[in-house]
Design a binder for these strands. Structure first.
Length: 223
DNA sequence: TGTCTGATACACT
DNA sequence: GTGTATCAGACAA
């Protein structure tokens, strides 16, 4: 297999989180585990952009041991623990010292073998389908992602976790909606910074009135 | 179908 | 010491 041609272009990750979030939809998250290499399609993301975003861990320029990875140049993984028991995977975006990140909220296994391995890691029956990875905590458990992977370069196809270009032939509509569970973010809570593939069963939260945002952006041909 | 609640461990002050 | 903001299971209807 020629993995080199599947790499996402480096220039993509220097975009702002708000630009990167919809562009990651349809592309492939790959996790190399002891049980095998798992491939899944990104179907839902959220943008956490800049020090002015009250929903971001880096709001106000907060620079702590946890958030320090957000200040790296785009393309590395930012993984944090929530509720003491779940992890969330983010793709760092933008330039050095500009803390931005895209939260991966939901993925869809590409093939049967991927679904089987993910079900094993989730410790649920394989028949559960979409419940497997329709949320940020679930997908991290299904892909055995924890903070030991924090800071890894997601463009390195020799590593434990990376991104690849998705099927260029896919065609879907992107919807935008407010982000989930950030009521504390005040005026930033209602901004439509969550993006997802319209109609995909793995999307974590269904909106009554989704806002059309665009269609599949073919990164392979655009960059 | 929708709403609610408790579990849990670390970040940060 | 206080805040975090997902998930599974329970319950009502």
């Amino acid at each position: 297999m020629d993995s080199h041609s599947n790499e996402l272009p480096t220039s993509l990750f220097s975009l702002s989180a708000l630009e990167l979030a919809p562009r990651l939809l349809g592309h492939t998250l790959v996790r190399h585990t002891e049980a095998g290499t798992i491939r899944c399609r990104i179907v839902e993301t959220e943008s956490y952009g800049g020090i002015e975003d009250k929903g971001s861990h880096a709001f106000g320029g907060r620079h702590t041991s946890r958030t320090s990875i957000m200040y790296e140049p785009g393309g590395v993984a930012y993984i944090y623990l929530i509720y003491g028991m779940y992890h969330c995977l983010n793709v760092v975006a933008g330039a050095q010292d500009d803390p931005q990140a895209v939260l991966i909220r939901a993925v869809e296994p590409l093939d049967e073998i991927d679904r089987v391995i993910m079900s094993t890691y989730r410790d649920i029956p394989t028949g559960k389908k979409a419940l497997l990875s329709n949320g940020p905590g679930k997908l991290c458990r299904a892909l055995r992602i924890d903070r030991s992977l924090n800071g890894y370069d997601l463009r390195n196809t020799q590593g434990p976790l990376w991104l690849e270009i998705g099927d260029a032939e896919q065609n879907f509509i992107i919807s935008a909606a407010p982000r989930i569970n950030i009521a504390y973010a005040e005026e930033y809570a209602d901004l439509p910074w969550r993006f997802y593939i319209e109609g995909n069963s793995f999307v974590s939260v269904k909106d009554k009135q989704p806002t059309a945002f665009g269609t599949f952006i073919d990164i392979a041909s655009q960059y």
